[in-house]
Simulated scan of single mutants.
Amino acid sequence: MEKIENPVAEAEVRWRSAAEGGRRSGNPTAPVYMATAGFVTDEDSEVDHGRVLSVLLQKTGELDEQRWTYLVGFLVPELALPHLRSGGVLQVLEGPRIVGTARITAVLGEPSGE
């Protein structure tokens, strides 16, 4: 996938280093990174692994080595919309491992469908 057709939000993502349990291969390099993610009340909260969603992240900028900006989409956006708010936190997962933390910086509105 080259781009997210109908992004629902913008976010700042902090990627965990391999030493912190993050991606051993480094930060994602695909135009659109696809993973699972769960909404949490704050960055230190546990993810309910029974309530994770498929997330799409399209890089738009780089703040520093570990923090990047992204457009955010979901494979089933209707499931995410009730939880989507500016300042909300998503834990980005690869399997059961948290590899990044996304803080929603802007909600872009209702999607028109992927």
Rank of each mutant, 00 (worst) to 15 (best):
T105R: 06
V13A: 02
G87F: 01
M34W: 02
L57K: 00
R103M: 10
Y33E: 01
E46R: 13
R85A: 15
A80S: 12
K59S: 03
E110D: 09
R16E: 02
S54Y: 01
G73L: 03
G38L: 02
G21K: 10
R23D: 07
S54V: 04
P111G: 11
R14Y: 09
R14H: 09
G61Q: 11
V89N: 04
A106L: 11
A19F: 11
T69H: 05
G113R: 10
A19Y: 07
K3W: 06
I98C: 03
R16Y: 07
P96G: 03
V40K: 03
N27S: 14
L53N: 02
F74L: 11
N27I: 14
T101Q: 08
Y70W: 14
G26C: 09
G50N: 11
W15C: 03
E94P: 11
A18S: 13
G87P: 05
Q58K: 01
G21W: 07
T69P: 03
K3E: 12
V13N: 05
T69E: 15
L71E: 11
G38K: 00
G87A: 07
S112Y: 05
E10N: 15
F39G: 05
L75K: 05
V89R: 03
L81V: 08
D42Y: 13
V107S: 10
Y70I: 10
R16Q: 09
R103N: 06
T41I: 13
D48I: 15
Y33G: 00
A80W: 01
L79T: 08
L71N: 02
V72M: 02
E110R: 14
V76R: 13
I98N: 14
W68I: 04
E5D: 15
G88T: 04
E114T: 08
G61Y: 12
A106D: 15
A9I: 06
E2P: 02
V55R: 00
E5I: 14
R23V: 06
W15G: 04
E94T: 07
V52Y: 00
Y70M: 07
A9L: 12
P82S: 06
D42C: 06
V76M: 10
V8Y: 07
E43Y: 10
L79V: 07
F39V: 09
L56D: 01
Y70E: 06
T29H: 11
R85D: 06
A18V: 09
E5Q: 13
G109S: 08
M34H: 10
T101L: 08
N6K: 12
Y33M: 03
L90A: 07
E114N: 15
V8W: 05
L90E: 06
V55W: 00
A106G: 08
D42K: 15
E5V: 13
V8R: 01
A19M: 12
G87D: 02
F39M: 13
R67Q: 13
Q58F: 06
I4S: 01
A18Y: 04
S17R: 15
V32W: 03
S25T: 05
L71G: 00
A37T: 04
T36W: 01
S45K: 15
V47A: 05
N27K: 13
E94I: 00
S45V: 13
Q91L: 08
Y33L: 00
G73H: 02
V92R: 10
P28M: 02
G100A: 07
